[in-house]
Design a protein around this nucleic acid. Structure first.
Length: 291
DNA sequence: ATCGCGACCTGGTTGC
DNA sequence: TGCAACCAGGTCGCGA
C-alpha cells in the first residue's frame, strides 16, 4: 500500500515524465475513481482535455498536477492505486480505470500515456477548480513531516492537548498528514510508547521524540524506495522493499521484539491492527483490563 | 471542537 | 472440494 514515501516517489516520477505534456483526451473506464468529481466522468474528461500539466505536487498522501488554467488534477492512490506512464500500445492493465492521452515533445511523452490503475478503488481523481497552488479540497489537511514548513512546535503543542490515544492522533490528518498504520506503529515502537496513551499524557520530550521517529522512519523508507523505482515506468506496486527488511513492529505478530525478545503483540484497532511490544511499550493504566 | 465508529472496495488467504 | 468469512486500510461522514 502506498504510504507517504511511495507517494513521493510517484510524485517525482510524474514531475519528470509528464510535466509539460498536454492532455489530448481522457477516457474514464470506471466511474468510481472519479466519484468525487461533481459532474462525473463526462465533466471530468471535458475539464481536462487540452490542458497542459505544469508539474506534480504532494501533501501527505495526496498528489496534484497543476494545470495551465489554474485548476489541478487531484489524486489519492488509496490502498492500491498506481500512476503509470506507459507506451500507448501496452496492453491495458487488469484494473485500469482512467487513461490520459498525452501530446508533447521529447522522449518522455512521445508515444506514451498516463494511466490510473486501482484494484480496490479506495483511491480517486477529481478536478480541483483553482487548485493549482493548493486544492481547497485538501486545505484542511495538515502539512506532512517531510514538508520543510511543517511546524514541529505547533504539532507537539496540539498533540499534548488531546485526549485520544496517541496512535489515533498520528493518523489524524488535521494534526499531521502522511502517517499511516505502518509508520505509526513503527514510530511508536521506536519511541517505546503504547498507542493508547492519551496525547495529553505525553511529556513534551516524548512528543518531540515521537515526531522525530515518525520523520525518521519515513525518510528511511524514502531513501530505500527512491532507488528502486527510478524508471520510466512510474510504479508503486505495494511493495516498497522497505517493509520486509526494516520493520520492527508492523506485521510481526508473535515474532520476538528486536530490542527485548518479547513476542510482538497484535491487537484490533479501528477495524485494522496494531502491533507493539508489550514490554517496551507498556499499555497505560487506562487501557489495561481491570482485574 | 473533539471523539469514535462504520462504510466504502477487491482479491488473496484461511477455516470449516 | 467448495464456499463463506476474514483481512488489508485511508478517508469521509455521521451521531454523540
Amino acid at each position: 500500500m502506498p504510504e507517504l514515501p511511495e507517494v513521493e516517489v510517484v510524485r517525482a516520477g510524474l514531475e519528470r515524465h509528464v510535466r509539460g505534456a498536454t492532455i489530448a483526451a481522457v477516457e474514464v473506464l470506471h466511474e468510481r475513481p472519479v466519484r468525487r468529481h461533481p459532474s462525473g466522468p463526462t465533466g471530468f474528461a471535458a475539464a481536462l482535455t487540452g490542458r497542459r500539466i505544469e508539474g506534480a505536487r504532494r501533501r501527505g498522501k495526496y498528489l496534484w498536477l497543476p494545470l495551465d488554467d489554474g485548476d489541478a488534477i487531484l489524486a489519492h492512490l488509496g490502498m492500491s492505486g498506481q500512476m503509470l506512464v506507459q507506451p500507448v500500445a501496452a496492453p491495458a492493465e487488469r484494473h485500469l480505470r482512467v487513461r490520459f492521452a498525452l501530446t508533447g515533445v521529447g522522449p518522455e511523452v512521445e508515444g506514451r500515456e498516463l494511466r490510473f490503475v486501482d484494484q480496490r478503488m479506495f483511491g480517486g481523481l477529481s478536478v480541483s477548480v483553482g487548485g493549482a497552488d493548493l486544492p481547497s479540497e485538501i486545505a484542511h489537511i495538515a502539512r506532512d513531516p517531510l514538508d520543510p514548513a511543517f511546524d514541529d512546535a505547533a504539532f507537539v503543542a496540539r498533540l499534548r492537548t488531546r485526549t485520544s490515544g496517541v496512535k489515533r492522533l498520528l493518523l489524524d490528518q488535521t494534526l499531521i498528514s502522511g502517517v499511516g498504520n505502518i509508520y505509526a506503529d513503527e514510530a511508536l515502537w521506536r519511541t517505546r510508547l503504547h498507542g493508547e496513551r492519551p496525547g495529553n499524557r505525553l511529556t513534551r520530550a516524548q512528543a518531540v521524540e515521537l515526531l522525530g521517529h515518525a520523520r525518521e522512519v519515513m525518510n528511511e523508507a524514502l531513501a530505500q524506495g527512491g532507488t528502486s523505482f527510478d524508471a520510466l515506468y512510474v510504479n508503486v506496486n505495494g511493495e516498497s522493499g522497505y517493509f520486509d527488511r526494516s520493520l520492527h513492529a508492523y506485521g510481526r505478530a508473535d515474532e520476538p521484539c528486536d530490542r527485548c525478545g518479547t513476542p510482538i503483540r497484535r491487537v484490533p484497532f479501528m477495524n485494522r491492527s496494531s502491533y507493539y511490544c508489550p514490554r517496551c511499550q507498556p499499555a497505560p493504566r487506562s487501557a489495561r483490563p481491570k482485574a
